[in-house]
């Protein structure tokens, strides 16, 4: 049996156990064990990937660290569980991870039938196609009859079928679970096309392709892929903690608070900043956290923009839709007050 099947079995067995196992609140359970268990991608540069020293880096990884900073005041109190696309939901359902931050698309089916809740969006994305340059393909409309590499258990797999049906074209899928294996198949020429979210294409072309110039990302973006962290359904307190952790990172950027200047912000006269850093008010307590939860997030992990610059900008990502709302993007945090 492969790993996904084992996890499926594990989830099935976990569901056979008494309900009391899940009655405990996640926040209490996390405090009791002393760390946040975070489900991340097995290796997608810019989102979650271990660096040369074995330290996990990426936009999703930073969200996990921010949750640890909010809960414990210590961003290092987090452990990572690398998950494939197929393993991720069962890992969250069965309680193996507390947060799933694994470039996962928010859809109504997942939100309503998988027993999980998306807390928001930390990356606005869309599905695209990458082809071998030597095929001389300029548009996705020219892909009739192509062989396409794709990972199973993704929205990508479904959008792909939809797109070809809508355009009355056919294709041959080659479906492999492990990112390394599916990329090997594409780079070796087993497939004409590799498809996933555009962010994933940019990431693997920059970090995995033997020669990035041999591959072209086609102009068509065929879907909306809002990627966001998710938690188990039915635990509103934990849902609030993770949701406002994400919003705090976005709000900090909007307020101009960074890991560098947040110490000075403690003495700020701006009432909004005072509330944010916990100098006044009791927003932290309302969340069931320390009043300096947001200060700790920004101090130890940074704001959203800092995380983007550190992880995604070096790979050639533009802010695009992932810019603040008042700068032409879609990132918008409700007021922290």
């Amino acid at each position: 049996m492969n790993a996904a099947t084992w996890r499926g079995l594990a989830a099935a067995v976990a569901l056979l156990a008494p309900g009391a196992l899940f009655a405990q609140s996640t926040l209490d359970a996390v405090r009791a064990k002393g760390f946040v268990q975070c489900g991340v991608n097995t290796g997608l540069a810019g989102f979650s990937q271990p660096d040369s020293k074995g330290v996990w880096r990426g936009l999703d990884v930073d969200l996990c660290r921010a949750v640890a900073a909010a809960v414990f005041g210590d961003a290092s109190k987090v452990r990572f569980t690398p998950l494939t696309a197929q393993q991720r939901f069962t890992a969250l359902q069965s309680g193996e991870v507390d947060v799933l931050a694994r470039n996962t698309t928010w859809t109504i089916t997942r939100d309503t039938s998988l027993g999980l809740n998306f807390v928001g969006v930390n990356f606005y994305d869309g599905q695209g196609f990458m082809v071998h340059r030597k095929l001389n393909v300029k548009s996705a409309k020219q892909l009739n009859g192509a062989t396409i590499c794709v990972q199973p258990g993704t929205t990508t797999e479904l959008n792909l079928a939809d797109y070809f049906r809508a355009n009355r074209m056919t294709f041959k899928p080659v479906v492999i679970e492990k990112l390394e294996e599916v990329l090997n198949a594409y780079f070796a020429g087993r497939c004409d096309v590799f498809t996933t979210d555009v962010s994933g294409l940019v990431s693997v072309r920059g970090s995995r392709a033997p020669n990035p110039a041999d591959h072209v990302i086609l102009p068509e973006v065929i879907s909306k892929e809002p990627l966001g962290p998710a938690v188990r359904h039915g635990d509103d307190r934990w849902f609030d903690v993770v949701k406002w952790t994400l919003f705090a990172m976005i709000e900090a950027e909007e307020m101009g608070l960074t890991s560098k200047n947040i110490d000075q912000a403690l003495a700020s006269k701006d009432p909004a900043v005072q509330r944010f850093v916990g100098a006044t008010g009791d927003i932290g307590k309302m969340l069931g956290l320390d009043n300096r939860w947001a200060f700790n997030i920004v101090k130890q992990v940074g704001n959203y923009g800092e995380s983007f610059e550190a992880n995604l900008a070096p790979l050639g990502f533009e802010r695009g839709l992932n810019q603040l709302w008042n700068k032409g993007g879609l990132l918008y945090a409700p007021p922290i007050r």
């Binding site: 099947t5 499926g8 997942r110 998988l114 199973p152 479906v175 492999i176 679970e177």
Partner: peptide, 27 residues
Amino acid sequence: AVAIGYPDLVSIANTTINQTGQAIEGI
């Protein structure tokens, strides 16, 4: 077969489990 992408029963069932979230039924 799932390791090398041949669409056998387990491969299809895994995809089904993932798209529907119904692990118990799939297994």
